[in-house]
Design a binder for these strands. Structure first.
Lengths: 338, 338
DNA sequence: CTGTTAGCGCCTTCAG
DNA sequence: CTGAAGGCGCTAACAG
């Protein structure tokens, strides 16, 4: 493994000169450049970024810490992050926290040791020590997808409250009065916000939300399955369901199918997050679409901006993207036409 | 940012002793350990992995270089890789080559500079310089998903030829005689193998494959869309289509829908790669399923094994997983019953 | 059980 | 335009 020294010797120059040629910094004659470049090629020299980073204190590496890359929403978001990062010369380390605050902290510690330049974090819980851990080392973070109330930190997320409000409004306009909300764990801001938007829409319509209709569980297919089963057991069975994410939607759908409940005839079903068009043949679900790719891009841009200006403690941005309601078949027609 | 020196001073020991405590290596009294650990906590010391790696020549980082994380097949594969890597104390850098050999080489160069301990590579082309680049630096690689004929390298992939053979056989058994094959670029082993399996099945059945029925394009939705349109223009329109991956399947489906061709009534359609059950409500496509998660896991295990034994030049493994044929509605009933 | 010495490969500082 | 000295934070190798 040749080092900068070997190249210098072969080119008959000092090693600092080689460094200057590699980084195209300072002065050197074009003759020197040629000799150095020749030596580099002949030796197959590859600079050691580790050593460089040790000196420069910059690794050109960002950390992407999310809950589960397997969820198409996060996959798309990750792609947005990677594109923006690599365009700026950064590479990406990614980790899955699986919604566990413990895994999250463990990863943050490892990533801090690796001296990543910045973090893109989808926090497992709204109240997370991970952010404090990162901030205590003066490393920039941008929080993605979820709000972290009371923390001075950049956030890029979607208007979950508004999206849920619109979806619920849609259901109400179709004549539904008994609507169940299947959401994620308390403390996860997107889950909380989607319940809040649901509540507000009901109140706007003068409907008193029945507490039993508000179910909380995991943001997984299993969670959706279980909550939908519970919803079907309620004394007054709902005529519509609002699911808080794509996996809950699918799980709920499965429970309904098993119970012989037809969507949308017997039960309207709307949710959050669309599947990418490249993945779905028969679009069926009415959803609030979040611009995952754009969110990833934007968050990365903000992070890179912070890195460039080294201004961590300034005022913090909160970028909130609107959701886009896409009406398809799962919401059904107006109930009164039945 | 405190260093190992600061900790040593505070604990009243030499810095090497701190190092020993941190890494739990060599000998030290339990009293020393306590003093050092106390100092570490008090200072909020975090070891600098960069410096450690510079000495130890190991970064505990693996590179995952694939074509597009957005494809659910690769997402699942990536998750398998990450789980196996993190269980062994490794973190993962991931990059998307978008099937471009140039991007691929660029990334490999960057990753080599970052001194990653090993590579997991989905090569953009069967004939790729990336592998040679990596091997020239004596860094272990495991190739994923695609074969690289003539290269002495570990490979974990699926039996594409066999899967295509079975799918084609299925179509033949249903009475189809005029079957189109929509595959990826020549030189991509999975694409080539899936054409080969298709050919063999036809020959087995005594059918001479018409060259016009074998279409090649991109492994994308767009590619599938275009190839399906071409297939519909053929003088003798096929009664069935074999698509080489999930995106081609979806694209083909779209083209058929637009042309008013019903699947499976007017055209049977079978493909490769299933969508994860967590993602799909109405399973429709008959597919050859590849065990993506297991492939990722297995490849990572092999790579970690190589890292442990430092044996790069020994005999190389080729692990070939079977595909599993899942028959659903898109393949339709026997043609003779119409 | 503990410490000293000497670098890993690179780049900042200062001197030609 | 070029180079020598020194150190980033850590740990092998060798003492004690």
């Amino acid at each position: 493994m040749p080092t900068i020294h070997d190249v210098a010797k072969r080119a008959g120059v000092g090693s600092i000169t080689v460094s200057r040629v590699i980084n195209n910094s300072g002065y050197f004659s074009s003759d020197t450049r040629d000799r150095v470049e020749k030596a580099i090629v002949e030796l197959g020299y590859v600079p050691n970024t580790l050593a460089r980073s040790l000196r420069s204190k910059r690794t050109n590496t960002l950390a992407l810490l999310l809950t589960d890359i397997t969820n198409p929403f996060f996959t798309t978001l990750a792609r947005g992050v990677e594109d923006a990062a690599s365009a700026a010369g950064y590479t990406l380390i990614f980790c899955n926290s699986d919604e566990s605050a413990i895994k999250e902290s463990t990863y943050v510690t490892i990533l801090l040791q690796k001296q990543v330049d910045g973090f893109l974090l989808v926090p497992a819980q709204s109240k997370t020590s991970a952010i404090e851990l990162i901030r205590s080392r003066d490393v920039p973070v941008v929080v993605l997808d979820r709000a972290v109330p009371g923390m001075a930190v950049d956030v890029v997320r979607c208007d979950s409250e508004g999206g849920a409000h619109q979806l619920t409004q849609l259901l109400i306009s179709l004549g539904h009065r008994c609507i169940a909300s299947l959401s994620g764990p308390e403390g996860v801001s997107t889950a909380d916000d989607r319940v809040a938007g649901y509540r507000r829409a009901l109140q706007d319509a003068g409907i008193t939300p029945d507490a039993g209709l508000i179910l909380r569980g995991e943001l997984t297919q299993d969670g959706g399955y279980q909550m939908a089963q519970q919803a079907l057991q309620l004394p007054q069975r709902p005529t519509a369901i609002l699911a808080a994410n794509n996996f809950i939607t699918i799980g709920a759908m499965r429970a309904l199918q098993e119970a012989g409940v037809q969507v949308p005839q017997d039960m309207a079903l709307v949710g959050f997050d669309d599947l990418p068009p490249a993945m779905v043949t028969f679009p069926f679900f009415t959803v609030a679409l979040q611009p995952a790719y754009e969110m990833g891009r934007k968050a990365t841009e903000i992070l890179l901006q912070r890195l460039k200006s080294r201004s961590i403690n300034n005022s913090h941005k909160e970028v909130i993207f609107p959701t886009q309601i896409i009406v398809r078949r799962s919401s059904g027609d107006s109930i009164s036409q039945r």
